[in-house]
Amino acid sequence: MTKIAVTLGEPAGIGPDIGVMLAEKGFLDKNIVVITDPDLILSSANRLKKNIKVNILKNIESKTYSSKNKINILPIKLITKNIPGKMNPRNAPFVISAIKKAANLCLNKKCSAMVTGPISKAVLNDAGYSISGHTEFLAKMCKTKSVMMLMNRKMKIALHTTHVPLNNVSKYITQDSLKKTIQIICKDLKDKFHIKNPSILVTGLNPHAGENGYLGNEEKDIIMPLIKKLKANNLKIDGPCPADTAFLKKNIQKYDVILTMYHDQGLPVIKFNDFKNTVNITLGLPITRVSVDHGVALELVGSNKIDISSFAEALKVAKKYSV
């Protein structure tokens, strides 16, 4: 197995503390390389009163170690002093550099996957970076379309649109764009998840899936005709299903993935189901990228009360589905 590149996200958030706690619990073996400023980790360890040692790599080929309480670090420097719990746009280039470094290591086959910690989109935009999330940023880097999919041990939920204002969602629902989303889901479920003939349930956009046009026309004019075409091509796909019944137990058991039309149509369900063990995996990329499903949680920095379950699960998923 080749190495997995890890970024910890916003330096003023819980990312550095999570890195320290993962090392303390023995989750960071020799195949896990964290791309960060070593001083950020040592400062966090001191704040949490944890005995952590760092192995600073000259490059990705440097010798790494599997040892509890040790972190293998490929170093990049903070731009300005970090104040835990207080985000600073001046450190935005540090955050972006870490993501780019990890992605390029994967694209150049030096790492088999990347796992990302939570970022603040607001701070990055305040610093002049036009970024709506990792999913879109990495798609642009890789020059491809991407699809966000959250998963845990019980279900997989994919999103047709991601970080789009609700009043703009309908503009993104066209037969061409929806077909591309479905093609990406099918390809990655086959290639990365080894599901021979994936089954997909598609939700509608409107209440009651449009009620035959009385509550909206997207289902009748766009989603339903596309699904009929895809079914005629032997794709295992059903819908549009009203979102309020899409996540019934029988559907979770029947379908490999449920495709929702927008961010808050699907994510509340899976996070309510098992927030601690849910991770975000980006489909459509030539690399494997997995992420936690939570934010920067400034209020928990330095508290020793951080739940590292999602990050630990992300590492497991990255190892399992690495390319």
Rank of each mutant, 00 (worst) to 15 (best):
I195H: 07
G85Q: 05
S130N: 12
N168K: 13
K154Q: 08
K145N: 13
K109M: 03
K81W: 04
Y172P: 07
K180G: 01
K81P: 05
T181M: 03
D126R: 11
A113H: 07
A158Y: 07
K86H: 07
S170R: 07
C142S: 10
V115T: 10
K110H: 11
T116H: 00
P118G: 04
C106H: 12
P89E: 05
I96A: 03
M155Y: 00
K68Q: 14
M149R: 13
V95I: 13
Y172S: 09
P89V: 05
K68C: 09
K140P: 01
T161L: 03
V95H: 00
D188M: 12
A139D: 10
H194N: 15
S132P: 00
D176F: 09
K77H: 00
N69A: 08
L74H: 12
I173D: 00
E136Q: 13
I200K: 11
A92W: 05
V164C: 02
N108Q: 14
E136S: 14
S67P: 08
L201I: 03
I71K: 03
L166V: 15
I157P: 11
L166M: 13
K145M: 09
C186F: 12
H160T: 01
K171C: 08
H160M: 03
M141H: 09
K70V: 14
K179S: 13
F94P: 08
I99G: 02
Q183H: 05
I83Y: 04
K196R: 01
N197A: 01
D191G: 06
I200G: 08
P93Q: 12
I157Y: 02
N69D: 15
M148A: 12
N88L: 11
E136D: 13
F137G: 06
L107V: 06
K101C: 13
V115W: 04
I131F: 11
T174G: 06
G117D: 14
V115C: 05
G128C: 10
M155N: 13
I131G: 04
A127C: 03
V123H: 02
V95E: 01
G133F: 09
L201Y: 01
M149S: 07
I173L: 10
I76D: 05
D176R: 07
S97H: 00
I96H: 00
F137T: 03
